[in-house]
Design a binder for these strands. Structure first.
Lengths: 228, 228
DNA sequence: GTCTATAAATAGATAGAC
DNA sequence: GTCTATCTATTTATAGAC
């Protein structure tokens, strides 16, 4: 993706550093992450960190770019594969959910970067984020043109999808503790249940009955009928 | 709420410290927050931090307890006021949205604490979290008994509500930057729009087409079409 | 309760040998 | 590319005067 700097890193110390960094940054955040721990986890000398990366922030940005770039790539495929807008949207949700399933560090990285106001999001990472939003916008637009979706702001829909997924995934440890204190039995959250919840909720808003004249910029949702 | 330690803190240095701490912890996270900055912001000598609080973590826990306690109190009122379950749920959403509006630091604190796996959530804070979930559970239960809600896991619904709200609020700075790079005009997100989106999405899932047997965790995420 | 001064421990980053 | 040793700045936390 970024630049083919394959300088023959012996056993791939750079790659191992990135993997260790993802873990550390996800678990502790940028400030909480320690270069020392990253190096130790990667089984690499600490000085190597500064051989491969200018500084801590540079390593962190590399992590961001790698992960958000992959997300953008994956959702772009969903859009490219086409299909009915409803289906594309469902696959969009499933894809993001799948990425989180594959990369348990994703929620930590993502949530913290949002909480940080995108402090470390540079132009490259921004471009990746833009691709994700643009992809979702294209799906929504296709649905609107096909008459099956009401017009909606892509970022609103995006947050409605990503927010719950990230929060559920990230809160797993806390929910486990909560379960042991919870009065009733609403203890755990099954991952398929939340994915299903989001899929249905999102589609319902896009295809459902119009809101009167709420505060939103929402338009009149066309009756869901025609196909693409 | 915790203990009436009103020792006449001259001009309320303790209170000012708490306010400054909320800001600092929200903006930078636990590790990124510096005791020095908190003291300076509170216009209080740094040593006073350790006079009022045992250590940094203690101050942070006080912040957590104050805010999550207030959240629990406010949503409990929603439940106590009664009304139709749909209305209670809408007011639940509006209340959380209102709290975020009143306290811009809330998303930062909340998201980071989730990303941290609740590292600093002690028994008292846990109790507050429990109250929030229990309140929502009571609302959902009322709806189910009244026959207007399908059974649902409270935590799933909770994440579906809180996730987008927190993410939208926290990502404001990043979205502002994104707007200037975004190809199309899907730039900004109006706060009322997201609240409306969540209200409708959540209610749609609860009142919409039953996927046979809800409540159960292992639901098949492949409904033919989700029409409302 | 408030302040100054400082201890004590980290942690980011680099120099330079191999 | 890899390692040891180390420099420097920062930061939590405390001692003790007022």
């Amino acid at each position: 993706m970024v630049s083919q700097k394959k300088r023959r890193d012996s056993a791939g110390s750079r790659r191992r550093l990135l993997a260790a960094a993802v873990h550390e940054f996800a678990a502790r955040g940028f400030d909480g992450a320690k270069v020392d721990r990253i190096a130790r986890r990667a089984r690499v000398n600490k000085a190597m960190v500064y051989y491969h990366f200018r500084h801590k922030a540079d390593l962190y940005r590399a992590v961001l770019l790698e992960r958000f770039g992959a997300i953008a790539d994956r959702v772009a495929i969903v859009r490219a594969e086409g299909g009915a807008p409803e289906d594309q949207l469902r696959r969009f949700v499933a894809t993001v959910a799948g990425l989180i399933g594959d990369w348990p560090e994703l929620p930590g990285i993502w949530l913290r970067e949002m909480a940080d106001g995108g402090r470390h999001v540079d132009a490259e990472v921004m471009a990746a984020l833009r691709r994700v939003v643009d992809t979702l916008a294209a799906i929504l637009d296709a649905g609107t043109r096909a008459g099956c979706f009401a017009p909606a702001q892509p970022l609103v829909v995006q947050m409605g999808i990503v927010g719950p997924l990230l929060l559920v995934a990230a809160s797993a440890p806390l929910r486990a503790r909560l379960a042991s204190v919870l009065s009733t039995r609403h203890a755990d959250v099954a991952w398929p249940a939340i994915v299903d919840h989001i899929e249905r909720g999102t589609l319902a808003v896009l295809t459902g009955p119009r809101p009167e004249a709420a505060a939103g910029p929402a338009r009149r949702p066309r009756p869901r009928s025609a196909r693409a």
